[in-house]
Amino acid sequence: MAPAAPKSGDVIFASVDRVNAELFTLTYGAIVRQLITDLEEVEEVNKQLDQMGYNIGVRLVDEFLAKSSVSRCVDFRETADVIAKVGFKMFLGVTASVTNWDADGTTCSLILEDNPLVDFVELPDTCQGLHYCNILSGVVRGALEMVSMKTEVTWLRDMLRGDDVFELQVKLLKQVPEEYPYKDDE
């Protein structure tokens, strides 16, 4: 059977079950507040958010592959594009853009102008070191690791810190070759 044609992020988002973004936003806020109360150190909160994101990414990639019918990306450029246009859209309902490629095509930035995580949010003075959206970087890292790409994901710009957009830098560290018995379909 021929593989199904890849679907656009909009089409997938329109077809999946959805919930009000405010429930999502406020729940995320409750999580962050709980972490700040429990862990006290902002650095520890960043780490825990990243870990939670990683856990999500590891599981989320299955749903992503199943629903998007995206086939193997030829290079990292295509991968980044798919994350920005299909991945972000189908889960968060927003699209990112990809820019700032380095010369050898292994580092780029995902730019988010709309981000449902940060509605109603303002960082108090005591939390200036907090990467409020660190869960997202964890998700990207976790999901890419499941498709054999080791990456480093860092926030370069953050609207909660006064920048004009959210900029997430994704750096490809290495492609892990797939091992037996996980054979490619083709």
């Binding site: 079950d17 959805r18 889960f91 968060l92």
Partner: peptide, 14 residues
């Protein structure tokens, strides 16, 4: 505005 139910479910599970 909406997000996917799975996004919420993943978050809630964490």
């Amino acid at each position: 505005q909406e997000v996917s139910l799975s996004a919420f479910a993943f978050l809630f599970s964490e």
